[in-house]
Every structure is written in C-alpha cells, then in structure tokens.
C-alpha cells in the first residue's frame, strides 16, 4: 500500500472523528437548550360568548330603521313609501 493511500485512510479516520465530535457537542448543546428553554403551549384563546343565530327571515335592527325612516320621509314629502328608497343607514 503506498504512502498516499495510507495518508488518505488516516485523514478519513481523523475527519470522521472530528465530525462526530463536533456534532456530538451540538447534540448536547441542543439538549441543554431544550431543557433550559422548554416549550410552553400558548394560552387558550378566550372564546367569545356565542349569540344565538338570528332567524333568517326576522328583520334586523337596520331593516327596522330603514322602514321607519322610509315611512317618515314619505309622510314628510307627501309621497307613497314606494316612490323613494333608503338603501343605507350609518350610525355615528
């Protein structure tokens, strides 16, 4: 076996030892980190109080407001409610 081949085998042995050494140090470092800084589950999100779903066909507050405003406007303008349409109500 020539010298170069022997050298390459020696180098390979040393290099593998160095890699295992470095990575073993990393393993213990990671274990230490995980031990010192353990995972904590995030606190559960507070649940919002569930409101009973409104019946689909029941008029909402906005619908009622629109109906009232439409009738008042119709009365004020002396028109029938069907002649004008209030489409949106914004509260301040």
């Amino acid at each position: 076996m020539n010298d170069a081949l022997l050298t390459s085998i020696t180098v390979s042995g040393i290099a593998i030892l160095v890699i295992f050494l470095v990575l073993t140090i990393l393993i213990f470092t990671i274990k230490l980190l995980v031990h010192l800084l353990p995972y904590k589950a995030p606190p559960p999100q507070p649940r919002k109080a569930q409101q009973p779903p409104a019946p689909q066909n029941a008029p909402s507050d906005v619908d009622t407001d629109i109906a009232v405003i439409t009738s008042v406007m119709a009365s004020h303008l002396s028109r029938t409610p069907g002649n004008h349409q209030v489409i949106n109500v914004q509260s301040r």
Binding site: I16, I19, F20, L23, T24, I27, K31, L33
Partner: peptide
C-alpha cells in the same frame, strides 16, 4: 431540534 440524536445520522 426535537430529536437531536439524528445529527449522528448526518455525520
């Protein structure tokens, strides 16, 4: 990080 011994497989 969850299973650090697998570093040895990389080696």
């Amino acid at each position: 990080l969850a299973n650090p011994t697998t570093l040895l497989l990389g080696a």
